[in-house]
Nucleic acid binder design. Structure first.
Lengths: 189, 189
DNA sequence: CGCATGTGAGACGTTGATGTCTCATGTTGG
DNA sequence: CCAACATGAGACATCAACGTCTCACATGCG
């Protein structure tokens, strides 16, 4: 397919809409996804060969947004705690999508999961390791666990916000306040 | 049904097995659940009218184990931080099941969810509130968020342990170390 | 205006899981 | 031994979602 002239359907818009819907209802049908995007199921299927392909595309989107957040947050600059704050702030818009992909990845079981996640995990773990080496963070909690914990907190917070149990404005402060308070060696917010 | 004399199939054993399997693969088939429990699908269906009934039963089991952990941990005794430690320690065996139910509940959407969860949430939030009032915990993180965060950390840790990325022995220390370090007002492990 | 192309609507067959049923088997209690 | 009962195995229909297909319509371009 070439889509040289006509392209009424914005592939990116479909992905965003699907992400929003699947974040709220992970078992949404292809029909529902299409409806949510304002297109027909046939058209949806023309752009994404199937549900798998759609999820893969969402995975790529999630990875891209994560890496963009990692870049923007400049994890290597300044105190590690500030870098964590910037990271959470930048990654917030993608938190819902991440939570969806996080649970979805559990279904892959044996399949080799996208190498992008490994890179992202490494960069996050490197940030925590840097904080430990600089003396900012405790050393009795492994960078790997801190990374996992960050994912968990992002998911919990995203879900709590979506459910209306907590205010969206508190998102970053809640996560960083809790994560850093636990990761920092000394008291301080 | 009366099951007065014969009862070769242990209902509780089936539930435990199903919990273990569904924790690892949330989309497991009724066939797989039956296989895992060592019984036939027909028998499984005799004990649990359908998949919904099975999930409901697992939910009841999860609630029961949670409340048992809450009781055993004696949340009202001594420093709140010690109570949190006891709680996490007691709730560890059920963490995998909780993670499964947590994501499963997201599917209920509009349905009224089991009132048991509200009671459990209240008891956990009450513990954090007690810690705040006694001056042990920060007050800029709401008890509600701390409760949600605890769920998220339990899920992350349970999954990380299941994946073999972290040692099971570190479970309690990882969670309490991070959660309390963030919730405690002062430094200290 | 013709022509091409993307789209919507819907029909159709397929697949996988489910729920229900029957029947043979084995085991327990009287 | 005999009767009752739970189980295993399998057949069967149902249903929902999927993937594929066709056709009519509209919109852009020459």
């Amino acid at each position: 397919m070439r889509y040289s002239r006509l392209m009424a359907v914005d592939r990116d818009h479909v992905l965003r809409t699907a992400a929003t819907l699947l974040t709220r209802k992970a078992t949404a049908t292809m029909d529902e996804v299409a409806k949510a995007a304002g297109i027909s199921r046939a058209t949806l299927h023309r752009h994404f060969a199937g549900r798998d392909a759609l999820v893969r595309a969402l995975e790529s989107l999630g990875i891209a947004e994560c890496e963009a957040a990692l870049d923007t947050a400049r994890l290597d600059d300044g105190p590690a705690r500030d870098a964590v704050y910037r990271l959470v702030r930048e990654i917030e818009p993608a938190a819902g999508l991440l939570a969806f992909l996080y649970t979805e990845n559990q279904l892959f079981e044996g399949d080799t999961l996208n190498a992008g996640w490994a890179r992202i995990d490494d960069r996050m773990a490197a940030l925590f390791r840097r904080g430990q080496q600089s003396g900012e963070f405790r050393i009795d909690l492994s960078p790997l666990w801190l990374t996992e914990a960050l994912y968990g907190l992002l998911g919990s917070a995203a879900w709590a916000v979506a459910e209306g149990r907590v205010a969206r404005n508190d998102f970053t402060h809640m996560i960083v306040g809790l994560l850093l308070g636990g990761a920092l060696r000394r008291e301080e917010s």
